[in-house]
Design a protein around this nucleic acid. Structure first.
Length: 495
RNA sequence: GGUGUGUUCGUCUAGUGGUUAGGACGCUGCCCUCUCACGGCGGAAGCAGGGGUUCAACUCCCCUACGCACUACCA
């Protein structure tokens, strides 16, 4: 028995917009499958729509895939034995194949205008009839058609779909799917502008690029019988089809920018890590069969399998994504975060040179375990670089009430008098003071935290004081005492 | 309208004829604790409905309902 051919899969996006998470998931499954079985993952750009083509979308698409770490062995930038990988650069190939089909009697030129087609469709719709091309030009004698084409008359090329019988194919996840040929119409293969439609280009390329498994969105299921018919007309063996379920928004509808985030870029901007997105997307419609959820890239590659893909569409749950991101924050170290987070602070106005690198690192170390997204470092960590100009409203009401002025002043004085500004000494000081005043430690700790950070939560107080340094702590304690004294406490609601 | 596809807690899912239907997010009670996170121990919450098949159905079959997709010279 001959050994099966090397598995080859591809992600074939159309550069007409941003990379949607659904598209990213499709790319991911292709990539995981290839990596898992030691096959090839290629990237092919399906830029056959002249009107919707968007250069910027293409650049972003490639950047997003790279950011996710979904590297391809053949495709744009890396080339390969089947180059070019842009369909717009392969036009002669499609035209030649369209001609071949016409010559072989599998396709025919169609001279119908868009207007006629629109009108036809409208009439059919109005009469509650299925919309489909009425095959008018299929009746034109071959010779007459050839002459009109030769004369330069504008036309498309349509596939001759059989009038009777069924077209059957197997979807890897759903089993046998049957379509009656009579409900399939004669699809356009080559457009008036001589560009191929998706159907032609896709089938031709998948064949010549030796694609063995087509993993794509399940919106392609209804087109698959037409593709199968095309494979048959060419006398080619179709690949294995694996139609992936769609990803839905929280409302069960399409995931859209209007309702929040939808693209890979959106989630990157929200402060999610690429590994989080990879892990999360992998779990949307697939699982290893057990309870494992936190899986690094290598682990996913190791356990991924087509069989465990769930054909049911899944809702994108951002809450769970956030939780997962937090799990990654817990496990990644300061070195990992430093280059990601420092620029964020700098972008908000922090002078990157005014603080030593070690200070940034200390702040990151103190903040990362309680953060869930990158912007949390800003939201809950600005006080490392700036005096708190406001105090959390609720906390201020609780800790900066009448009489707290004396307490803050006492705290300031005793910290100032401390011979060694060390975590242990600070802790001992607060314990002593609490006993002396006959109050709980928290009654001292919370006002202090609020005074030095402006917010009622964050790292352990003594570590935080150490990180900020004695001068800063004293200055802020003093400022808070003054604010209380003057009755001018500026507050803000912390998000 | 036609065609196709899907349906286990709110959400992601495990489950392949006999289970107290398991886990995770979220919600929630308690614990840990200087706060917030983290973590630990609990709790509420589910097999869309109806027919079959079978000694036995979440699991197999049929029907209905509902969701989604396609129905372009877009992909």
């Amino acid at each position: 028995m001959a050994s099966p051919p090397r598995a080859r899969v591809r992600f074939a996006p159309s550069p007409t917009g941003y990379l949607h998470v659904g598209g990213a998931r499709t790319a991911l499954f292709n990539w995981l499958f290839a990596k898992h079985i030691g096959g090839d993952f290629l990237l092919r750009i399906e830029d056959t729509d002249q009107t919707r083509y968007d250069e910027k979308a293409l650049v972003e698409l490639v950047a997003d895939l790279k950011w996710l770490g979904l590297n391809w062995v053949e495709g744009p930038e890396v080339g390969g034995p089947h180059a070019p990988y842009f369909q717009s650069q392969r036009l002669p190939l499609y035209q030649e194949h369209a001609r071949k089909l016409v010559d072989g009697g599998h396709a025919y030129p169609c001279f119908c205008t868009t207007e006629r087609l629109d009108q036809l469709r409208e009439t059919q719709k109005r009469n509650n009839l299925p919309t489909s091309y009425d095959r008018l030009c299929r009746n034109i004698p071959a010779e007459a058609a050839r002459q009109r084409v030769a004369a330069g008359e504008k036309h498309t090329v349509r596939l001759k779909v059989p009038f009777h019988g069924d077209t059957v194919f197997k979807d890897f996840l759903r089993g046998t799917i049957t379509y009656q040929n009579r409900i399939l119409d004669d699809l356009v293969l080559l457009k008036t502008d001589l560009f191929p439609t998706y159907h032609l280009a896709n089938v031709v390329d998948d064949h010549y690029m030796e694609i063995t498994h087509v993993l794509r969105g399940d919106e392609w299921i209804p087109s698959t019988p037409r593709h199968v018919l095309l494979y048959q007309a060419f006398g080619w063996e179709p690949p294995t089809f694996v139609h992936l379920p769609v990803i839905l928004g929280p409302d069960g509808g399409k995931l859209s920018k209007r309702k929040g985030a939808a693209s890979v870029g959106d989630y990157r901007n929200l402060g999610y890590l690429p590994e989080t997105l990879i892990n999360f997307l992998a779990l949307l419609g697939w699982n290893p069969g057990g309870d494992e959820e936190y899986m690094e890239r290598d682990r996913l590659v190791e356990v991924f399998s087509l069989e465990k893909i769930n054909p049911k569409s899944a809702v994108f749950d951002e809450k769970k994504l956030e939780w997962l991101n937090g799990q990654y924050f817990l496990r990644r170290d300061v070195d990992y975060f430093f280059p990601l987070v420092k620029p964020l602070w700098v972008a908000t106005g922090v002078d990157g040179n005014a603080f030593p690198e070690s200070y940034f690192r200390t702040a990151i170390g103190l903040l990362k375990d309680r953060s869930k997204r990158l912007p949390d470092f800003i939201t809950y960590g600005m006080y490392f670089f700036r005096e708190p100009d406001t105090y959390d409203e609720k906390a201020a009401r609780k800790y900066f009430g009448p009489g707290s002025e004396t307490l803050l002043q006492n705290l300031h004085d005793s910290v100032a008098a401390l011979p060694h500004f060390q975590t242990a000494d600070l802790e001992a000081l607060y314990k002593e003071t609490a006993e002396k005043l006959a109050v709980k430690g928290g009654d001292l700790i919370h006002p202090t935290r609020l005074a030095i950070s402006g917010i009622p939560f964050g790292p352990g107080l003594f570590e935080l004081m150490m990180a900020l340094g004695k001068d800063t702590v004293l200055r802020r304690l003093n400022a808070a005492a003054q604010a209380v004294r003057s009755g001018q406490i500026r507050t803000a609601v912390t998000v």
